[in-house]
Simulated assay, not measured.
Amino acid sequence: MSAEPTIEQPVESLRDLALEEAALDLLAARVAAARKDVRARTQQALDAAAARDGVERIAAILPSGEQVATISLRRGETGPVVVDEEALARWLRQTWPDQEWTETRVVRTVKPWRLAELVAEMTAAGAPKVADKVTGEVHDVPGIVWKPTRARTHALTWRKGGKDATANAWRSGALAGQFAAITAGGAP
């Protein structure tokens, strides 16, 4: 029996792997910083364009003219936010003493399920006010302010084939200007 010669596979150098990992770590940090910066600048520009011209979306178009993605403005939301639960609990107890809005502990708190109902009612009303279902009297609710609950933002939606087209444009150098800051010297 003759033994067949074994073909050795080249083993990756540990030093090569260490360098690749270090380089990718640096690239990831720079990409993350660049992405955060461009998202902030895009949001600012979209907000200005929406206020000025009503623009709510913009196409991402390669230098070749191919549209690869769409960036759309997402509206923020505002709603009731409890800022002083103790004041709210006192008011609820005084306004509707026979209802089970609150429970007594060392500190009076609002029952979470009742608070959810109250917040839903204020959200539907569009203000930190509630109407008494029996008397119809409208109450300003203490301990609640109306403020943003979710920031206005934007979303990127890729078109079919857009990622591949963008990757090809990157490899060909067509996006060199967009990526120059990432590969330039200096801290990420």
Rank of each mutant, 00 (worst) to 15 (best):
G143D: 04
V55D: 07
A174M: 07
V81C: 01
P188E: 07
K133H: 08
E4N: 08
E21N: 11
A23K: 07
S2M: 03
S13T: 15
R57I: 03
H154Q: 14
A22W: 08
A22L: 13
Q178F: 13
A18R: 15
R15P: 00
E8C: 02
T104L: 09
A187K: 13
Q99Y: 11
E85P: 03
R93W: 11
A50I: 01
A69S: 10
A51L: 14
L46K: 08
G161C: 01
A22T: 13
R105T: 10
T153L: 01
T42N: 04
R39W: 10
T183P: 00
P128A: 15
R41Y: 04
R74S: 05
E56L: 08
A125Y: 01
A169N: 12
I182H: 06
S2R: 09
A181T: 10
P188A: 15
Q178K: 02
A167S: 05
A34M: 02
A125C: 02
A174H: 05
V81A: 07
A155P: 00
E117F: 05
E21A: 14
A28P: 00
M122A: 01
V130K: 03
G162I: 06
V134C: 00
A22Y: 09
R105Y: 11
H139R: 06
E66V: 15
L26E: 14
A155T: 15
G65E: 13
G126D: 10
S72N: 01
Q43I: 00
A59M: 09
W113R: 09
T6F: 08
D47R: 14
R90T: 13
G162S: 06
P188V: 08
A28Q: 12
V107P: 00
D164E: 14
L27G: 02
W96T: 02
A51S: 12
D53M: 01
A176F: 02
K36Q: 14
M1N: 07
V107L: 04
I7K: 06
K163D: 04
A3D: 11
E66W: 01
E103Q: 10
A151G: 10
G136H: 11
L92A: 15
D53L: 10
A29G: 11
E117L: 11
V145H: 07
G186Y: 10
G143W: 04
R35A: 14
I144D: 12
A87N: 06
R39I: 00
F179Y: 13
E20R: 15
L14S: 10
Q99G: 00
E66D: 15
A51V: 01
G177C: 06
V38F: 07
T153M: 00
L88G: 11
G186M: 08
A180Y: 01
A18I: 08
T157N: 06
V134G: 00
